[in-house]
Design a protein around this nucleic acid. Structure first.
Lengths: 233, 233
DNA sequence: GATAAAGACTGACATATATCAATATTTTAT
DNA sequence: ATAAAATATTGATATATGTCAGTCTTTATC
């Protein structure tokens, strides 16, 4: 089993399960959050939040790993991103319609805080710096989706899969060897192709010695070559 | 020539060129905007704002029409949406990095207000209701991109083109007959396919009497059938 | 009104990708 | 340890889509 993301990263006053974002809060505000949140532990595979349900709380992932995805047509999904601790999860529903617009499922056992939405909004109103940092995070997520839209529609399969693997490297693990948190099927959902095609592209990558998959681990052998494949589409 | 969107829709105090959003401002705030904005007229085809440039101002489109698109790989573009008056345009750069993350080009002669970004942010801080409505608009745009990500990656060409046309009907013109504001090439950029494929799909639609294109007009003849094609992908 | 330029169109062909069917492997439950 | 279930793999095939080359049509310019 992997040791990634198993230890709590931060200890905010009176609360061990809050994202870095919450360090912009003063003790009074933190206490308000503390008094209006609950913590829930999820097992790998469990659904943390389901697309379409009412958003009564915002989420903060304290430990574990999760996938965040859009439920599309006829059961097909598009994975938007991997959620690692400590991450705050809100989404466009906070301001638009108080609904969740994606589903989040635990990939590893995960500890998640649910913070009352009204209280959270109240704090956003009270604390300008916090609000701006929150919006900055949200905007970064939006840019990720812009980027994904481009690469999923303008690149061919090898380029898309290379981007998926580079994403895991650059954004999630920051090292060439990391646990296979996603099945072939999930990798196909991250790169918009069929499961079988994902298998074939990964086989080709391994044949060309770009990476190695064994014992529940993926090891990137030639990151530069992957970046080249990403670039030429 | 079409009469769509040629007349100013709203007359805010002391300023004729502001989006509906701005009606949440009090006279004092409006005056602040007024004193820190400039109005520029663009001819059809001109670039209003270029992706990658610094965001010194936010935009408000007062009249005309524009396309808002992401510049992708090797000159290829993905049109995100059509901008009609009166629309406010900010984007994720406001909070993230003060850059524009899409390009906006006029499709018809357009009048655009440029509002100083710092002044705009100041007003966001001062006026809570305005800030929330602004974020609601932004969130709606994000949901549009979610939706686009799904349909561009999970539907085939006829479904994607049907969605593009339904978008023009439902969101922009709200009537079955409307001017051809987009070339075949631009329609292909809205539905993620090659120009030739767009031509062929549109030819098939016309052959099946779903729509008619003539004299710079598109007329939807069978919206229900288009919606069915959209649904079955 | 002639000419050039841009955009639209077409069919043939090449390529990318999905689907299918069959088998193999791994994981989970008993 | 074994059976059952889920996941992964493979090659053959069908389909979707892009590319190319050539022609046609419309629009703009002088």
């Amino acid at each position: 089993m992997s040791e990634f993301f198993e230890k709590p990263l931060k200890q905010c006053v009176g609360c061990q399960c809050m994202s870095q974002l919450f360090c912009l809060l003063n003790p009074q505000e933190l206490q308000l959050v503390d008094a209006n949140k609950i913590n829930v532990n999820f097992k790998a595979g469990e659904t943390i939040k389901k697309q379409g349900t009412f958003m009564t709380h915002v989420l903060s992932v304290n430990s574990g790993l999760a996938k965040l995805y859009l439920e599309g047509i006829e059961g097909r999904s598009a994975i938007l991103r991997i959620v690692k601790p400590t991450s705050f999860i809100g989404g466009p529903g906070i301001y638009f319609d108080q609904r969740h617009h994606f589903t989040i499922t635990a990939l590893r056992d995960a500890s998640v805080c649910f913070i009352n939405l009204q209280v959270f909004k109240e704090i956003l109103r009270m604390n300008q710096a916090f609000a701006e940092e929150f919006l900055k995070d949200f905007s970064r997520d939006v840019l990720t989706v812009y980027n994904r839209l481009i690469y999923l529609t303008q690149k061919q399969m090898p380029g898309r899969m290379a981007d998926a693997i580079i994403y895991l490297h650059d954004e999630i693990f920051q090292q060439p060897k990391f646990p296979m948190i996603l099945s072939r099927f999930e990798l196909s959902e991250l790169s918009a192709m069929s499961r079988e095609s994902a298998v074939k592209v990964l086989r080709d990558f391994q044949k060309d010695a770009l990476l190695r998959i064994s014992d529940h681990e993926m090891e990137i052998l030639d990151l530069d070559a992957l970046r080249t494949i990403s670039r030429i589409g």
